[in-house]
Amino acid sequence: MAETMKLEIFRYHPEKDNEPTFQTYEVPFLEDWVILDAINYIKDEIDGTLSYRWSCQMGVCGSCGMMINGVPKLSCAVFLKDYYPDKIRVEPLTGFPVERDLIFQMDDFMTKLTEIQPYIIRNKDEEKPLDEGEYLQTPAELARFKPYSMCINCMLCYAACPVYALDSTFIGPAAIALGQRYNMDSRDHGRDARQELIASHEGIWECTFVGECSAVCPKDVDPAAAIQRAKVSSTIDWFKDVLIPWGKKK
């Protein structure tokens, strides 16, 4: 008989269960299978009631994030062979309320993402008409924010963040990194508008630089660094305000 592997999966049915349980499934072990392949096999062949999110299967859509043995990962990007022959424990991303099985509620993140205004904001009087063409940018200007623009909103960084898990009022890694992505864009004028939220206590100041958000990021966005750099620039703002209170306040 071919080799098999065991997956221990978090199950929670909102209409039947008060408490989650773990259910163990035995799946074929294939060298080229990722964990998502094994979960798809369970759904198709063993238990159609298992619920989870997935889409692209190639690490760009950011929807298949799960806790794999306690570590947030994209389940389409981790191979079974890296765990074989041990049992793999699969849970929904930490820090979010669970809706059903591996599906967690992402409303909080979506709200925060909107609040951070992750888009280019121009000063009203500096908006040029469409027929004047694009706002040009040098490669050097692009390089300043490009790494932060790689975020796929997979929320692994939130699941890695103990500060967010302890208190979900914290804005969290991805949203702040995306705020910084636009703050550092030479075409953007929206920093002051974002700063109200970023420089608040719930913004950057709750972060204790655990650094795991950056360690688990599948796109090397380095949100931890983005947050620390926002602390530096917000501190400079603060001292400017205190030392030259009559200066540049609009």
């Binding site: 929670y12 909102p14 209409e15 269960d17 408490e19 989650p20 930490t94 820090g95 309320p97 669970v98 809706e99 509620q105 103990p162 898990a165 302890l166």
Partner: peptide, 12 residues
């Protein structure tokens, strides 16, 4: 929708 909130122990 009733969601399940997992405890986050202080020994994380």
């Amino acid at each position: 929708m009733s969601t399940y909130h997992r405890p986050f122990p202080n020994t994380w």
